[in-house]
């Protein structure tokens, strides 16, 4: 009986964010002649890729029924560590092996991100602290650590090659965009095609049922926090490579909001249990286009937050209407 409606709703969930993006895209194209220029579109993609990459990991965390507020501060701390590691490694490996030093710093950055994520995960699973509280705590701790290590200034890299990683392109597509899309495909496969993805949804949907079904609930949730840490690692590496530096004060600030917003606009409910990586990518791009349009139309930057906020609230309202 109610089967038909369920199918309809399922389709909405899948295509709703895409339709919204398409409408936004058309409006933007009409409003500004520059919008459709390839360079502008690639710019938008590059701008959204830093928070977009984190939003991929955030999707996993939110599906599992959790949240991670610490990702913004984590970007600053990981970025700082990446640059310090790079500077150190260049000294050790010698100038000739600069590429190896960069690779080394990249690996360290990703592992360090994973480690910070593991810290969050341990507090939440073994420590049984509510995710909101635990990551609110580490949000303060990570930022403070970055400020302390960087003396509240900017971590500057001594490498001339490092910016190549951040500015470079593969087939005319900026490197961070390639990473964003590549990771999105991998994450989507993990979510839809592997056991872990199924377990994530099960745990987020009803942890008790998951437990009775022989699913390792704590391990599943723990891995989701490590995963978001890894995405922060990627984001921090490419962000610091682009700037060849990382600010301990403003680096990654408000990234948690943009990442969470991308997930929500993409149709993943805050209550968890289900979600889509495709939706999150759409959500991230939607946010990017809004920013881009407001800039091009000369809207005060102070008002951009208002528009973003309205879009987030609107997205949730539409989802709620549909689920009723």
């Amino acid at each position: 009986m109610a089967v038909e409606t369920s199918r309809k709703r399922f389709e909405y969930e899948r295509f709703g964010p895409l339709i919204a993006l398409a409408i936004l895209f058309i409006i933007s194209a009409i409003a500004s002649p520059y919008f459709l220029q390839v360079q502008n579109l690639l710019n938008i993609m590059r701008q959204v890729s830093y928070t977009g990459i984190i939003a991929l990991g955030m999707t996993f965390v939110i599906i599992s029924g959790g949240i991670d507020l610490s990702v913004g501060s984590m970007v600053a701390l990981v970025g700082g560590v990446v640059i310090l590691t790079l500077n150190w490694a260049m000294g050790v490996f010698g100038a000739a092996a600069e590429a190896w030093a960069i690779l080394f710093a990249l690996v360290v950055g990703i592992l360090f991100g994973a480690g910070l994520g593991a810290l969050n995960g341990l507090m939440i699973t073994l420590g049984k602290i509510a995710p909101f509280i635990a990551t609110l705590g580490t949000m303060a701790i990570f930022r403070s650590m970055a400020l302390y290590i960087g003396s509240a200034g900017v971590f500057r890299s001594q490498s001339n090659l490092f910016p190549e990683l951040g500015m470079g392109k593969i087939l005319e597509i900026p490197n961070p965009v390639v990473v964003f899309i590549g990771l999105a495909i991998i994450f989507s496969v993990i979510l839809k095609q592997t056991r872990y993805g199924r377990y994530l949804c099960a745990v987020g949907s009803n942890p008790k049922v998951a437990k009775y079904s022989a699913i390792k609930v704590n391990l599943t949730r723990f891995i989701s926090y490590v995963t978001v840490g890894i995405t922060v690692g990627f984001s921090a590496v490419f962000l610091s490579a682009r700037l060849n530096s990382m600010s301990s004060t403003t680096g990654g600030s408000n990234y948690e909001l943009d990442a969470i917003a991308a997930v929500i606009i993409g149709g993943t409910p805050m209550t968890g249990g289900t979600g889509s990586i495709f939706g999150t990518v759409i959500g991230a791009i939607t946010l990017g286009i809004i920013n881009n349009m407001l800039n091009m139309l000369g809207v005060s930057p102070y008002l951009q937050g208002t528009v973003k906020g309205i879009v987030i609230i609107g997205a949730v309202l539409i989802q709620r209407k549909r689920s009723q």
Partner: peptide, 30 residues
């Protein structure tokens, strides 16, 4: 509903929830 089935999952997702390892090496055999 409290500890037996996931009402937000479909029949397939519920049926193979415990035995999922038997359906997947790396990817799930849908």
């Amino acid at each position: 509903q409290g500890s037996g089935i996931l009402i937000s999952f479909d029949i397939i997702g519920n049926t193979t929830l415990i035995s999922l390892p038997a359906y997947s090496r790396i990817l799930i055999n849908h």
